[in-house]
Design a protein around this nucleic acid. Structure first.
Lengths: 143, 143
DNA sequence: TTATTTTTTGAAACAACATTGCAAATGTAT
DNA sequence: ATACATTTGCAATGTTGTTTCAAAAAATAA
């Protein structure tokens, strides 16, 4: 077997290129921690800015990664768990942004609660972002 | 009595200027619908871009308006309900973004539900944004 | 009201983030 | 190996937001 990245790209009908493999590899190293475009740009000098934008778009379209809304105006992305397909995300989990270390992470076990909406609204998607101090930073404070 | 805008500005210890009055007036016309910086810029040709940024910042600091997170990287703002003071917002309501008309609005009556977080996390703020079809667009579809 | 002080405004320059078009390079299929 | 389709990198362009500073306007004092 070549590599898990190759397998994932093939499964999603994406051409296997060096850029895509290295970006995907970065995400797999991070697990639940989200990456901004700039994070990737700094980690992978060999890949052009524009290619990163296009790759993120392609991955999101295929359901490999999902975007996380951030109030600071910089999009963040993280790997989807199994169960996401093209144009059909199952990311019903809460996201957490640490105000101290700045990291954004997926709380895969915290599900977005049901919402009682007014009549006439059709819900397509619900986003929930919690900000505060993450458990790692909290521990450092106490020591 | 001059005008409600004057009263609000005075109450918040802000100098009364034409720019601030017209921006505040725009918000009062919108009620719960949020405005982007660009919306204001196009509506008020007489006010400079930079002044709009500074006014939005000042209003948010004073608790006159609150910001709404948007994944598209453009900040949105809407009037706060009574109860917001300087540096102390009470915007615990859900926001709705219509995928058809693009409008963002405050659902003042829909409160953000309680969240059961993993141990070690400290919550400072919770944002919840629902996207879908708003009731106005829904009605138009059916007719 | 007028004079003085403080705050706000507008314009230009700058910086970060993001998109588009197109030729060159790379991947895929035969 | 060849032909075809896709992807990449670069340059140009656009959008969003910040900073600096002199001029204009508002608040305050006389």
């Amino acid at each position: 077997m070549k590599d898990l990245t190759v397998e994932i790209l093939r499964r999603n009908n994406l051409s296997v290129t060096d850029s895509r493999r290295s970006i995907l590899h970065l995400f797999m190293q991070q697990r639940t921690t989200a990456l901004r475009h700039s994070d990737i740009e700094h980690s992978l000098d060999a890949v052009d800015r524009v290619t990163i934008y296009r790759t993120l778009q392609a991955f999101a379209d295929k359901g490999i990664i999902h975007s996380i809304p951030g109030s600071d105006g910089a999009a963040r992305y993280a790997l989807c768990k199994n169960g996401c397909e093209e144009g059909h995300h199952h990311d019903d989990h809460v996201h957490f942004v640490c105000l101290q270390c700045g990291a954004t992470q997926c709380l895969d076990d915290v599900h977005i609660p049901y919402l009682n909406m007014p009549d006439g609204f059709e819900i397509r998607k619900t986003e929930m972002v919690v900000s505060g101090i993450c458990c790692k930073c909290k521990q450092q404070q106490q020591s």
